[in-house]
């Protein structure tokens, strides 16, 4: 075995593989193109960090959805309900720890935020398990029914949120140490946005590690390409799918917490409002591609912030415009998954 792996004379003699790195340049290119338009470096830094933070949160929410589609061709338009659920649960958990969230002490804030995130992820994952069993499973392979029933599921979920927490907008203030901004030269960078970038990078790194370094990740990547062959090799793809669906729902719950803290107020419809953005991201990235989803989310986040500052009217449709441009360039998204 080892004779065949890297380090052997045969392997050393091989030509290098031409990986598709062009899409990796999109994010820095967009940021650099925006730089001269901003007028000042400090504005550019502020907007870039805000865009990256927004992109990271969208990535956390969308990454599970793209794998769910890639593995089983399931169009889950109910994904938004896990976002709202996560945000409301976090609000409830944080509400019990106001002493800690009001403290200026970062450690106490983190000790309050971490359980809120964990509870959001666990409950969203559990609800995701039930959602898959009751709503998704009867409609495998039937896209139209999937759209109808998952949207219906989301409406029911939103109504249940109204029953439990009420229909009114509820404020979700940031823990005290997360508020305010750091000054980098003349640029003011909000602390929470930096935290969102760090958490987003950590989630991306964890997903990258699982997908590229573990057998489960290998199975997921293979299943996205050809699930029939994965089954022919002796693996139960449905179990894998359920696992991915639960993980995706949990990530949406985490994303919901972060989105809620980003917006600082909650409405039962907050998930369905983000839904459109998520679908734009996974289409831009290439359905089933986590790497494409990451790049797509960052592009969407940056563009929304840049256009919101430069041409606010364009910001209303900038993401749709971005999707059109990307699809004209690569009709199956930035990183099309082989065989799809």
């Amino acid at each position: 075995m080892n004779s065949a792996t890297a380090g052997s004379p045969v392997m050393d003699a091989l030509p290098s593989v031409n990986a598709d790195r062009l899409p990796l340049l999109l994010v820095p290119v967009l940021a650099l193109v925006a730089l001269p338009l901003m007028g000042s470096l400090s504005t550019w830094v502020t907007l870039t960090v805000a865009g990256l933070a927004m992109g990271m949160i969208i990535f956390i929410i969308a990454s599970g959805l793209t794998l769910v589609f890639g593995l089983m061709d399931v169009l889950n338009f109910g994904h938004g309900v896990f976002i709202a659920l996560g945000a409301y649960l976090a609000m409830s958990v944080l509400g019990t720890m106001t002493g800690w969230t009001a403290s200026e002490h970062l450690l106490l804030n983190l000790l309050a935020a971490l359980p809120a995130m964990l509870v959001a992820m666990i409950v969203a994952g559990g609800v995701g398990l039930a959602f898959e069993r009751v709503i998704i499973r009867p409609v495998y392979g039937q896209h139209l029914k999937q759209i109808m029933i998952t949207m219906g599921g989301m409406i029911v979920g939103e109504e249940l949120i109204k029953v439990i927490w009420g229909a009114q907008t509820i404020p979700l203030p940031l823990p005290a140490a997360f508020r305010g901004a750091l000054l980098l030269g003349d640029a003011a960078v909000e602390k929470y946005r930096l935290i969102a970038v760090v958490i987003g990078l950590a989630v991306f790194a964890a997903m990258f590690w699982v997908l590229s370094r573990t057998k489960v990740g290998l199975l997921i990547r293979a299943g996205v390409q050809d699930r029939e062959m994965v089954e022919s090799l002796g693996y139960r793809i449905r179990r894998l799918f359920v696992g991915v669906f639960v993980a995706g729902s949990a990530l949406a719950g985490l994303g919901g917490v972060m989105w809620g803290l980003y917006q600082q107020n909650l409405t039962p419809q907050m998930g369905s409002q983000v839904n459109v953005l998520i679908f734009i991201v996974i289409i831009i990235g290439g359905l089933g591609s986590v790497g494409g989803c990451f790049i797509g989310a960052l592009l969407v986040g940056l563009l929304a912030n840049y256009t919101g500052f430069l041409v606010p009217k364009v910001a209303l449709f900038s993401n749709i415009l971005l999707m059109v441009i990307v699809l004209l360039w690569r009709p199956q998204g930035i990183y099309p998954v082989a065989k799809r």
Partner: peptide, 22 residues
């Protein structure tokens, strides 16, 4: 039924059900 995005090694590893690593 080749997994085109996976390496030759990864394709073989998938088929070797008992193996966790190459």
């Amino acid at each position: 039924g080749i997994f085109a995005d996976l390496t030759v090694c990864e394709n073989m590893l998938l088929a070797a059900r008992g193996a966790r690593r190459a």
